[in-house]
């Protein structure tokens, strides 16, 4: 277990034990955009009364939900193993949570081949999560191929941002 993961865990434990009384069920978890809109300083009265999902906590390893791939490849690169294990643990340990793995490619090459490539990438992540114990029925895969670029630019950097699988909860 990485030091970062341990730190995040202890932050999480502190946050949980810091709540004197169980918070009322939140109406809905704020989206990433809403969280960004709040700025880095938590709005008073919200943080104190509501437990934030680790998925939305920048300090949690679960905050990162994208893994990137090499060109025309669907192999999971070693640097993403920790991130994916954290998500596997979270899904495994959190009843009712399901994940959609959205596979994407860069724009180079044909659209249908890229759709297949995105499918291979989301399938690779699915297999990784299943190897970590996540039941298949809690995973859905969806390939967008090159149709949904994260960065519509035409640079190597944009392309590398687009070769990805997003974990969508």
């Amino acid at each position: 277990m990485s030091i970062r993961w341990q730190l995040s865990l202890s932050v999480l434990v502190l946050a949980l034990t810091g709540c004197a009384t169980p918070p009322p069920p939140p109406p809905a978890a704020p989206s990433a955009d809403e969280l960004d809109a709040m700025g880095s300083r938590p709005a008073p009265g919200i943080e104190a009364t509501r437990e934030r999902s680790p998925l939305d906590d920048p300090a949690s390893p679960l905050y990162r939900k994208v893994v990137y791939f090499e060109y025309d490849a669907a192999r999971i690169q070693p640097q993403y193993a920790g991130l994916l294990r954290a998500h596997a643990d979270y899904i495994y340990n959190t009843p009712g949570v399901e994940v959609t793995l959205e596979g994407h490619s860069d724009e180079r090459g044909t659209r249908e081949y890229n759709l297949a490539l995105g499918d291979r990438r989301s399938d690779a992540v699915k297999r990784f999560l299943m190897a970590e114990g996540v039941p298949e029925k809690r995973i859905r895969t969806l390939s967008y191929g090159e149709e949904r670029p994260a960065d519509p630019g035409r640079t190597e950097r944009a392309w590398s941002e687009n070769r990805r699988v997003e974990l969508v909860y």
Binding site: E112, A116, D119, S143
Partner: peptide, 9 residues
């Protein structure tokens, strides 16, 4: 066709 995964080409 609307199966799990790709439905394409």
């Amino acid at each position: 066709a609307s199966y799990e995964g790709i439905n394409g080409s």
